[in-house]
Design a protein around this nucleic acid. Structure first.
Length: 569
RNA sequence: GGCGCGGUAGCUCAGCUGGUUAGAGCGCUCGACUCAUAAUCGAGAGGUCGGGAGUUCAAGUCUCCCCCACGCCA
């Protein structure tokens, strides 16, 4: 039995995620986790909300809530949506958890002991009205270069000139609008990533099987320009993990917190601690410490391409720099972007479909199937309502749903709702078994390799094989000549439904449950041989004809949704 | 402006280290079947692989230049 640690990039707490976010990490991670569990392997599948940072504070302020309360509420919302999409996390944690506080402070202490942290004195803008330091992009003013009056402290959007906050004319807080700003001296901690450059380089070189997208992004950050830069890991904020050196105070760092990028990936580990505590004290270190049982764990991370630098460089730098035997990622699966109808999904403009809206319209399996079978794996891909409608109607309703319908209804009308007896396999059946064995092997390999689109294609071909068989066997004709032979054909058809439940479960968990319940069985584990799987339902076993599994999307509904989600309003 | 990823049938996309008549699904046309959600199954039409030059016995696949789209950065 293999052991698989699987993590999905952790979504930011601020707001509800759109389908592009979903398909870029959580959904394929869930597909892989479900597949590995079905194979009988031990899986720990973790995700969490990323809760610290200025955007969370501002969103809370806008909602008129204390930030801790806001985060707790939004975590509950995201948690519920994850359940809605059947994301099978073993634990959905929070980067604000006590476990992450302790672990983040622990790592900072270790890094400091290793000489990998330096203090830097900086001059930053402080807003007296807001009572806080302002990140560069939250300072607005008039651009000294082009006169644009809404230039940000880091850059002017109008003329693209890079700016320093002090360059701005009539600078004001983007939060309150106050112009009562002053520059103050403040001290921050920097992680000396540059010291770890060679270690990281060698580590990435050892990952020959990583996708090109992943390694090229990592190499670019390592080698471009002046190479890997040291990064600030602290901020002058209230909301976050207080800066401490392990268990001890950190002189000069009072009132400061760690920067969100530093503590967020550590939550992958802390989340295992949260999971263990929720289990009443399970052993989480056997998943994360190679000196405590994690040496046989295979760790796979799923994320969008924008997250690659953090996962290939920043987080590994933290782990390597600690000098402790932490489990490092083995395989890193990154995704491109899903576009919406010719443009980008946009949270700020409400353009595209968001997770809550999607579930209000259609069941999770419709979305899971389409998103996964069209996921942006090798390049950006495109969501349009027409493509969505075609994919759902053809693949789910016509190919899979209709197969189940024709087999069960034919059986009911000729033999009743019971698996019929009689007949023996002939050449047609042997051919089908041979084809399915080949396809099962291909499907399994693709799933092992996390080739999502190819997996979906193969699964679909397995569904199609059922329709091809029925067309060739034609039980509706056979039954006029040889009832026993027709019984065998339809018994095979019923067993195919059981097989489809098992093979479809990673993509379509609810449908798999429905199919299994229809056949009066449990969803079985991953089949080893087709021949065996096709004898699972014995003659005499009763079943029930299900309602149509999938309703088709008609043109009217499509037009309605197209208008509803255009973001024009 | 720099960098990155792409530009392959009407559409969405596969095509590994260069090697037989360039593939899939959808859409379209024709045919078969009638058990089924007017579903299914089969056959067919459709591409000078963005443009140009080069390397090679051989290039969608390597090199160079250009054009286009998208993304990131400054």
């Amino acid at each position: 039995m293999q052991r698989h640690l699987i993590t999905s990039a952790i979504p930011y707490i601020n707001g509800i995620k759109h389908l592009g976010n979903l398909v870029g990490s959580q959904l394929p991670a869930d597909l892989y986790a479900r597949f590995q569990r079905a194979r009988g392997n031990e899986v720990l599948f973790l995700c969490a909300t990323d809760e610290h940072g200025t955007p969370a504070e501002l969103a809370a302020a806008k909602a008129g809530q204390p930030v801790a309360e806001y985060c707790a509420e939004m975590h509950a919302v995201q948690s519920e949506l994850a359940r809605g999409f059947r994301l099978s996390f073993d634990h959905f944690g929070r980067s604000s958890s006590p476990q992450n506080h302790a672990l983040t402070q622990h790592f900072a202490g270790r890094l400091a002991d290793a000489g990998l942290i330096r203090e830097v004195s900086e001059r930053q803008v402080y807003s007296n009205a807001d009572g806080r330091f302002l990140p560069d992009r939250y300072i607005e003013g008039t651009c000294p270069n082009c006169g644009y009056d809404r230039a940000r402290g880091d850059q002017c959007e109008n003329c693209t000139k890079q700016l320093d906050p002090t360059d701005l004319i009539d600078a004001r807080s983007a939060i309150s609008g106050s112009t009562d700003l002053e520059v103050r001296e403040t001290k921050h901690l920097y992680l000396r990533q540059s010291e770890l450059k060679d270690d990281l380089d060698a580590w990435i070189d050892s990952k020959a099987d990583w996708p090109i997208l992943t390694t090229s992004i990592a190499k670019k950050w390592l080698h471009d320009g002046d190479g890997l830069q040291d990064r600030g890991i602290t901020r002058d904020l209230d909301w976050g993990i207080p800066v401490r050196r392990g268990d001890a105070e950190w002189p000069g760092m009072e009132g400061k917190v760690f920067y969100v990028w530093f503590d967020a990936p550590i939550e992958y580990i802390a989340c295992a601690g949260e999971w263990a505590d929720a289990q009443g004290g399970a052993d989480w270190e056997r998943w994360w410490r190679t000196d405590k049982g994690a040496d046989d764990v295979r760790y796979t991370q799923f994320m969008g391409k924008d997250n690659v630098p953090f996962h290939t460089l920043s987080f590994p730098a933290t782990l390597l720099g600690s000098g402790e035997p932490w489990k490092m990622v083995d395989h890193l699966k990154s995704f491109n972007y899903l576009n919406y109808d010719g443009g980008q999904f946009s949270t700020s403009q409400g353009r595209g479909v968001f997770m809550n809206q999607a579930l209000n319209i259609l069941p999770a399996d419709y979305w899971r199937w389409w998103l996964l079978s069209n996921c942006p794996e090798t390049s950006d891909s495109e969501f349009t309502w027409e493509l969505f409608q075609q994919g759902v109607n053809k693949d789910l309703a016509d190919v899979l749903g209709n197969f189940v319908s024709r087999v069960t209804k034919f059986c009911r009308s000729k033999f009743g709702e019971v698996v019929p007896d009689g007949g023996v396999f002939g050449p047609l059946e042997q051919d089908l078994i041979a084809e399915l064995d080949k396809r099962l092997a291909a499907y399994t390999t693709h799933m092992e390799n996390m080739e999502v689109r190819k997996s979906a294609q193969e699964l679909r071909a397995i569904w199609v094989a059922g329709n091809e068989y029925l067309q060739a066997a034609a039980p509706w004709a056979t039954i006029k000549e040889d009832e026993a032979q027709a019984a065998m054909q339809i018994r095979l058809g019923l067993n195919l439904i059981g097989l489809y439940a098992a093979l479809s479960a990673p993509f379509l968990p609810d449908t798999a449950d429905t199919l299994a319940a229809t056949m009066g069985v449990e969803v079985s584990k991953w089949p080893e041989s087709i021949a065996k799987a096709l004898n699972a339902l014995a003659p005499g076993h009763t079943f029930q004809v299900p309602d149509n599994l999938f309703a088709k999307i008609d043109d009217a509904a499509r037009a309605t949704w197209e208008a509803q989600f255009s973001g024009a309003a």
